[in-house]
Design a binder for these strands. Structure first.
Lengths: 161, 161
DNA sequence: ATCATTATGGACCTATGATATCCATTATAA
DNA sequence: TTATAATGGATATCATAGGTCCATAATGAT
């Protein structure tokens, strides 16, 4: 279980766009030179980011990409979900297996109305909790926060001089 | 990015073993009937769990599997790592890209001794933090805790009657 | 000792998705 | 009108997940 390279590229591309905010329309050529990745591959990724409203793109002379929103409003979670998709981290296969059927029957036999309906697998419950934790964390970091961290390091160094 | 089916199978198999603790040596036939998965595939998974000391296996008549340790000492994290491997959730490709080189040069130019050595990518720093969060969460849940949750539900129902 | 039983590990297969390239087309500004 | 730059479709390659089959080894029962 790993994040794809595309996610890596997407995040770094967005950081570069954020760093170059005064200039608008950064071309794919500059982006792929900066990231060290092929033009054709990176444009697929940029295309996805555009379709999800994270960047704007303009073709033609002096065209290129720019952030569609302030860098502080683009979270890591959002970027990751655009690239990786929005499937759940964990899906319980064989919900009709004997193990699950027994648990469900238990619940049914007990006629516990509170438990009806939440026939979810207990393993999945734990894993869904893990996913929630992860999402909560990734929502707290934005493209801007990375830029801030970089300049904070820089200021720290300057103060020492 | 998703957990594999194998992780699903492994967790459910371990829960079944834990539920059947008094009987020892649960055969692969019983396990795969319970989980609804093929014998040949599940045995690969069980073999991994054995190699990592999570279950014990004994061949021959009346042989089978049993937990190698108390269910309360087998964490979700451990099981997941055995099955999924221990690679990092995020690896930064192109550490020699222009973007990374510039950051590194900045640090070097500043001659900030505190920052030397930690030339790590700022994106990776965030993602490593996410991984730590996830691991911390998954370490808190064990095979036993799932069993406890199930019986707690059961008691809750009995008290209402 | 032999035999039936059960786990093990190697070889193999297939499907899927990640990674990647190429090109024809479309949209834009100069 | 033209050069430029993004877009999307088709395609290729490779690694991994998911899965099967079989020969072998180990074990308890007879």
């Amino acid at each position: 279980m790993q994040f794809s390279k595309s996610t890596d590229y997407a995040l770094h591309a967005l950081i570069h766009l954020a760093q170059s905010e005064r200039r608008n329309n950064i071309g794919i050529k500059e982006l792929c030179a900066t990231l060290g990745v092929s033009e054709s591959y990176l444009s697929k990724i940029m295309s996805k980011l555009r379709q999800d409203g994270i960047v704007r793109a303009v073709p033609g002379v002096n065209g290129g990409y720019e952030l569609a929103r302030p860098a502080g409003e683009i979270t890591f979670l959002e970027v990751i979900q655009v690239i990786e998709g929005r499937q759940q981290l964990f899906e319980c296969s064989n919900l009709d297996s004997q193990q699950h059927r027994l648990l469900a029957e238990d619940r049914a036999a007990r006629q516990d109305q509170d438990c009806q309906g939440q026939s979810e697998c207990l393993v999945k419950k734990v894993m869904d909790g893990a996913e929630r934790q992860l999402h909560q964390y990734l929502r707290e970091y934005t493209i801007q926060s990375v830029l801030d961290a970089a300049s904070k390091e820089c200021n720290h160094a300057l103060n020492k001089k």
